[in-house]
Design a protein around this nucleic acid. Structure first.
Lengths: 146, 146
DNA sequence: TTTGTTGTAACTATTATTATTACAATTAAA
DNA sequence: TTTAATTGTAATAATAATAGTTACAACAAA
């Protein structure tokens, strides 16, 4: 299955927080921008807060980045919103048959290779930061004339 | 969500077909080795057959590789079992708000980066073949004494 | 005190995964 | 020709995750 839209949602949310300065960025505002629901936004904000990426203001509302955008990588965000169980990208079929020579050894042979693929993906996620997104989207917005 | 166990199942199935020579590899045999169900095995075999990775013998039963194992990459297998919709690893949240400057531009900025991550993962999948698995598992089996 | 907000629980609808039963079509062997 | 084993596929179900929604207590500023 695809990686949950929680990830792109989280990036969208962080982008709003990083870029928008003239409005208070509330969960209602974010729900409107992302075309989702304030509760979903608040859940994701909670996850981002739990790993120290944002701070959220209770009562009065709004949120801001807890770190400079160049220190927030896509990997941080991906891990925060828990798109995969136990951090494992691949779901291995359960309990292959130990009585079969293949079933007995398939984990020995496959586990490393799956990890290798996952690491390649995570390395790429780690190489992209919110600073990249902030820079590019600011350029887009400026071209469109404020 | 994690990538469906159809992928590891398919690799397990192909490994059995590649390695086991003294028994007819039927869907019942494969269901026992993988600890799943003959129908699930047959569905996956059907998908592998559709993209020309295996040939399946109707009536009498059994299956064999349609290509040498070094020409069957993990990427071929991954694509065959359709673990993600439309071939896209990431599920983008639907219809971000065009009236918001971030909602209007988030696709422009994110799409390329998501594709970059996906390509890194697929490049790694493409670098691993069934020949690697066959070689390593044969070694494991030999060490264990036939 | 009022207002707007966050955090969270509870619930729903939809969808994908995985498993299962059932059976027609196929093939080889008895 | 019949029997037995097998594939291909439809239909169904259980489980779990996703994504959405309503409701409301706790909170903080005006």
């Amino acid at each position: 299955m695809q990686i949950s839209s929680r990830f792109t949602l989280a990036v969208h949310i962080l982008t709003c927080i990083a870029v928008i300065k003239d409005t208070k960025v509330t969960s209602n505002f974010l729900a409107s921008s992302t075309n989702t629901n304030p509760v979903i936004v608040r859940k994701i904000l909670g996850q981002l807060k739990n790993v120290g990426l944002v701070e959220v203001v209770r009562g009065t509302g709004g949120a801001f980045l807890a770190k400079p955008p160049e220190e927030i990588s896509f990997l941080d965000i991906y891990k925060a919103v828990e798109c995969v169980e136990r951090g494992e990208l691949f779901h291995f079929h359960e309990n292959p048959n130990e009585k079969c020579p293949i079933g007995r050894n398939i984990h020995n042979v496959l586990d490393d290779k799956l990890e290798q693929v996952q690491r390649a993906m995570e390395r790429e996620l780690a190489s992209i930061s919110m600073a990249d997104v902030q820079g590019e989207i600011t350029k887009c917005i400026n071209i469109q004339g404020k």
